[in-house]
Amino acid sequence: MNITKERILQAIQESEYILTSTHNKLCLPIINRIYKKMINGIKFDDIKVCDSTIIDGHHRYISSILANMKLEEAKSSKTSATIEYDWLDIEFVEEEWDTKDKILRLNELDALYNNISLEKIIELTK
């Protein structure tokens, strides 16, 4: 699937699992990597939520909506600096935010968390 802002907004609109964002910019390559893992059965940590607002886990949330999965939520809290954004106002950038080393480390952690080989994780994200 070609993941675009339009596809993301459509998936959110069609979903019954709606949360609010506290980020005004998200990374499409990260969403794409996580989505590929999710549709292949890779499990992820809970996202942190306060009421119906995502505090941590925005890329996982979007990926889960696209993969038609619901992630577990861990209770979190807002601060006075927390700003909520409408999904229509969020910028989804093509720029890669993660370094190759960070992607490798995340893949290692996902392999460990899911008790599968690093090679399998890498294969799933191609």
Rank of each mutant, 00 (worst) to 15 (best):
N68C: 14
I18P: 07
I42P: 03
M69T: 00
A67P: 08
N107S: 14
D46I: 04
T99E: 00
A81L: 09
E6N: 08
I122M: 12
Y61F: 12
S63F: 04
L19W: 02
K36P: 05
N68G: 12
N2I: 15
S77E: 08
S117E: 12
I31D: 01
S76Q: 07
E96M: 06
A11S: 11
D101W: 09
F92I: 04
W87I: 02
R33P: 02
T4C: 08
D110K: 01
E108W: 00
R33Q: 11
L28R: 08
N115H: 13
I39A: 01
Y113N: 14
L66N: 07
L9E: 03
P29E: 07
T4A: 05
E96H: 04
E72M: 08
K25F: 10
A11G: 05
M38R: 05
Y35S: 04
E95Q: 09
W87C: 06
C27I: 03
R105F: 10
R105D: 13
K37S: 13
D46F: 10
Y85N: 00
E96F: 05
T22P: 01
S117A: 09
F44C: 09
E84A: 04
T82W: 06
D46C: 10
E108A: 00
R33T: 08
Q10K: 09
A111R: 13
L28A: 00
T79K: 08
E123Q: 13
A81V: 06
L28Q: 06
I121V: 15
L118V: 06
R33N: 13
L104K: 11
K70L: 00
D89L: 03
K75D: 12
N40A: 04
I55G: 01
K100P: 09
F44W: 12
E84H: 05
E94Y: 14
D45I: 07
R7M: 09
K36R: 14
T4W: 00
T79W: 00
E72V: 05
V49G: 02
D51H: 11
K25Y: 08
K126F: 11
S52P: 03
E108M: 11
L118N: 09
N115S: 15
L26E: 09
Q13S: 13
Q13C: 03
K100S: 12
M38W: 07
S77N: 15
I8P: 04
L19S: 01
D89S: 13
T22F: 06
N24H: 15
L66V: 07
E73M: 13
L9Y: 06
E91G: 00
I12D: 06
F92H: 04
H59K: 12
H59T: 02
R7K: 15
S80K: 12
E6P: 00
L19R: 01
E91R: 00
L104N: 14
L71G: 07
E14Y: 08
N114D: 07
L124S: 06
L88K: 13
L26M: 15
W87A: 01
D86G: 05
T99L: 06
D86Y: 06
I18N: 10
N68P: 08
E73L: 09
S80D: 14
E6Q: 12
K48F: 09
N24E: 10
